[in-house]
Design a protein around this nucleic acid. Structure first.
Lengths: 334, 334
DNA sequence: GTGAAAGCGCTAACAT
DNA sequence: ATGTTAGCGCTTTCAC
């Protein structure tokens, strides 16, 4: 039982030494005689002793734990992010406390407080419901993934503009006359949209944009999208969807509407997660380097953590914004 | 900074009371005068004080933390499980330490040790690489999801046999003459396979089974499956895949091979996760009640935890095995 | 080389 | 109604 887990004192007693000595063996610090070292090691093994990380953390103020806040790991992109982050952290001996905000600001706030109370050493956030201003005042190592939170908070993301361009150019190359954009929210900060607009402007084509918010209920998404597609049908002959799941809906519409893909209608998605590539291996998509993003985010975070531990000022990091290159994965939908 | 986070003593000093009093206010225990209560509350607010949960945990031996071990939350099923578990835990004031084993036994072992060292109060495991026998000796509240680990460890899962039957019966009803089974591992413990076999036997049809292991590398999966489908083509006119991602591969094969679905070829999957239902809304599938599974698992786990805290023996729980009913979600692939 | 003792931030007796 | 004090399990001076 955890209630009767052996403590340092038990090991010490069994080995016939003091707790200090056992602690030294554990952290192999200072001089130890070969003999003592062995006896202690035996005692540890015999008892199946496992140091209590909580006690260590309380003393050293290092919990070796990082919090991750995402909308939901049930979404392939964030699921893959969680795996990437956990991996990268594990390499450095850190653990991961997971928080799914489910797009609710109140939950996100609660999670933030929870993480702080748990004395995590840093936070990686992939969620942000805009009204969560608490982040601004959090004096704790913080890195955002994908979406930018505030100018001074380091952000790691894909080269979204170039991704948007890549997708749109590809559609034009494949012969699309009027590619539309399907995205979650149309606004200046939408960099994938920016890439799309740039290319269309260069080609002298008028943009056609549909926005279906990130948090639209499941049962409304499909009708919203198909209604729109029916409406623009004839005019629009291709869609660049800023995430693969939206692209999937377009594909489904095409199937039901009897439009041949790619002959009559072309589709490009965005993300290229493992899950969706297995679900829709044929989908042409812009693949994000999720693993690299996670590694970078963790690196940046640990650097901040180390910085604060060694008492350095958190410098105005020149790497506060990292953009990683994306790749076009061709499929039969274009 | 976390280094200069206010402590209980700081609050006490500011409010002009003792630490014990502050602690009482915090946990509102014992008698407090209205006035003191207010002064302390103010001090807490002024300082932005947040109790150090580590210190609390060290003292009370309750970390309010549970570990979740899954193969990978990048897989839609386990991503959804992670969300469900986190939700259910949050309702009871517990937090979640996430571990992705990635199907590697060594990693799973490491994770297990990590969780123990972190003094989690319980573990929910959805992963298990068979050679990880460590679970057997872990004296800690433990519940498995989906896959059974050992007879005495509580297990919560879908009614897999009935799911297998449902899928197969549905295919026959839709006119399939020779439905094949595509699964990860063919063996007696594979309950979905059992359901499939039962129905085929009753119908006097000879089973046709293909196994592609859970941990087959990405790039081998597709060829393995399509090679098989090409080989049995003509004979087999339908497939029941024991997970949706495999079903997706079959669909892709049908598309490339020019087989019309569902006219020439029918497909049923298994899982019915949110992600896959968005990626492939047309796929007929057997939906698992993931949310209910998670709630049950958490319930069972917390019951064990409470039991041990209140010193009761961990009784031979009559609920050590819970099977939850599945649902057929019809699509156009049948 | 090794031990004794202080203390990390908190709660829970035990006093008053 | 509130304060004092002894730990929770560990690491870390400072002695010996």
């Amino acid at each position: 039982m955890s209630g009767s887990e052996p403590r340092l004192a038990d090991v010490a007693a069994r080995a016939g030494v003091s707790v200090a000595t056992v602690s030294r063996v554990l952290n192999n610090r200072g001089y130890l005689s070969r003999d003592t070292r062995d006896r202690v090691a035996r005692a540890i093994a015999d008892l199946g002793y496992r140091p209590n990380l909580l006690a260590r953390a309380l003393l050293g103020r290092r919990t070796q734990t990082v919090g991750l806040i995402v909308p939901s790991v049930a979404l392939p992109f964030f699921g893959e992010v969680a795996v990437g982050v956990e991996n990268a952290l594990a390499e450095h001996g850190y653990r991961l406390l997971l928080c799914n905000s489910l797009g609710r600001a109140d939950r996100e706030r609660d999670h933030l407080n929870l993480l702080l109370a748990n004395r995590v050493e840093g936070i990686i956030s992939g969620a942000h419901n805009d009204p969560v201003t608490e982040y601004q005042s959090v004096e704790m190592p913080l890195v955002t993934i994908d979406r930018e939170l505030a100018p001074h908070i380091p952000n790691v993301r894909s080269a979204n503009v170039s991704g948007g361009r890549l997708a749109t150019e590809h559609l034009l190359q494949r012969g699309a006359q009027q590619p539309a954009l399907l995205t979650s929210r149309s606004r200046p900060q939408n960099l994938r949209e920016q890439g799309y607009r740039e290319v269309l402007t260069e080609a002298g084509i008028v943009p056609e944009i549909m926005a279906v918010d990130f948090h639209t209920p499941e049962n409304e998404r499909f009708p919203r999208i198909t209604t729109w597609l029916d409406a623009v049908q004839g005019r629009v002959d291709a869609v660049f969807a800023t995430d693969d799941l939206m692209a999937a809906t377009v594909l489904e519409w095409a199937h039901r509407a009897g439009r041949r893909v790619p002959e009559d209608f072309k589709v490009v998605g965005f993300d290229g997660t493992l899950a969706v590539r297995r679900a829709l291996p044929g989908l042409t998509t812009i693949q994000q380097p999720i693993d690299a993003i996670c590694r970078q985010a963790v690196d940046l975070l640990l650097r901040q953590i180390e910085g604060r531990v060694t008492g350095q000022a958190l410098d105005q990091n020149p790497l506060a914004l990292v953009e990683l290159p994306v790749t076009l994965v061709p499929g039969w939908t274009t």
